[in-house]
């Protein structure tokens, strides 16, 4: 994805800024990149979050559920940043 040609969805969580870049086809999230200054442990789990999101219908509840599932499976902790914050950032990217 050429992210500099894509408009980001920008959302500020208490734990930091989340910029999402998305590529959507037929209502399905095909590709996603995130840049931000939040904290998330273990750090590598971000790649699982992004990978698992691919193929998800771009509806708020579906995205949120998908991210929450990855949080549970990978035992993710992210002080000040919740699955709903990532969802919000993606939703803003869809509007962008």
């Amino acid at each position: 994805m050429e992210i500099l040609k894509t408009k980001p969805g920008i959302h500020k969580a208490r734990g930091g800024l989340i910029r999402s870049f998305v590529f959507v086809e037929n209502g399905i999230l095909k590709d996603i990149t995130i840049s931000g200054d939040f904290f998330l442990f273990p750090e590598e789990a971000i790649f699982k979050i992004l990978e698992n999101l691919k193929g998800t219908p771009v509806k708020r509840e579906e995205l949120l559920k998908n991210i929450e599932d990855t949080y549970a499976k990978e035992k993710i902790q992210s002080p000040g940043t919740a699955p709903s914050d990532f969802t919000e950032s993606i939703m803003k990217a869809l509007e962008a």
């Binding site: 992210i3 500099l4 980001p8 840049s35 200054d37 939040f38 998330l40 750090e43």
Partner: peptide, 25 residues
């Protein structure tokens, strides 16, 4: 979790050493 091309204007950073750390923020 930061991407250089998103967070920085790389054309203005030519005389900076840039790296990434293993922690967020």
């Amino acid at each position: 979790f930061q991407k250089a091309e998103v967070e920085l204007d790389l054309s203005k950073c030519k005389d900076y050493t840039i790296t990434r750390r293993i922690s967020g923020g």
